[in-house]
Amino acid sequence: MDQQPEQHVVAHRRRTEPTAQQREVQPTRGAPVFEAKNVSIWYSAFRAVTDVSLSVHEHEITAFIGPSGCGKTTVLRTLNRMNDLVVGARVDGVVHYRGASLYSKDVSATAVRRRIGMVFQKPNPFPKSIYDNVAYGPRINGVRNRGKLDEIVERSLRQSALWDEVKDRLKASALGLSGGQAQRLCIARTLAVEPDVVLMDEPCSALDPIATAAIEDLMRDIKSRYTIVIVTHNMQQATRVSDRTAFFSVLRDDKSDTRTGVLVEYGRTEHIFQDPTDSRTKAYVTGRMG
């Protein structure tokens, strides 16, 4: 299958993306972790997203923004095959993850998800202790050694900046945590399996500003070790944390009364917010369009 590094990220963009060779010269630019080409996503007969092409780079934070119903979460969930769990969901086009096609027949969704973790909109700790929540992933991957597990739990909780708050009550139920703590626990749970990529689906939408700031700090901290893709409805958040931003919008077809999500523009965050090429992007980021 043809798999040239993307010449440009999106049809509307004219900028050339770095190739792997360029990365050697320009170490700040990550190698593409994901490359999506002409991806359309269907829920039964409903085409949720049409013709999305973009690439996600290593050790960067990539933000997906756009109005509700634009398919940004849908695209995110294609990146670790979470959409497999939705009955009737179908993906057309090509999604490559580090050179391997995610949707080819012999690829196992569980193997994919072990490398590409996900943090959800609403904190979803399991009804178990804090310790068992974090240890869940390592345990299913065969880590039985108590000392090793302790080490992983502590490391993950430290990475997610939760250790100091919970170290004295690791055996307490995770359901007793505040919303922000629970979300950081979910991040720790994801980091415990040492994924390559962390996908975040509006991780702060259920949190207050202080908890949100904590999560954003945490994202910047762990960026050096992980590649992060975040869906957010909060444009300030995108400008604060992300290196690149993809703006999605809804395309309405009045004739057939259907709607579908499209990728309007993708590029470096400062570019998208300060000097967008597409007028729709401009309207959205300056708040002239809902």
């Binding site: 040239q4 590094p5 190698a31 593409p32 050179g99 391997a100 690829v107 490398r115 299913i140 065969g142």
Partner: peptide, 20 residues
């Protein structure tokens, strides 16, 4: 699949295991 990037090809198949 032709190798286009410099990255080694990744094996995302589920290895036969007790879990599976």
């Amino acid at each position: 699949m032709t190798v286009a990037t410099e990255q080694p090809k990744l094996d995302l198949r589920e290895p036969p295991s007790w879990r599976r």
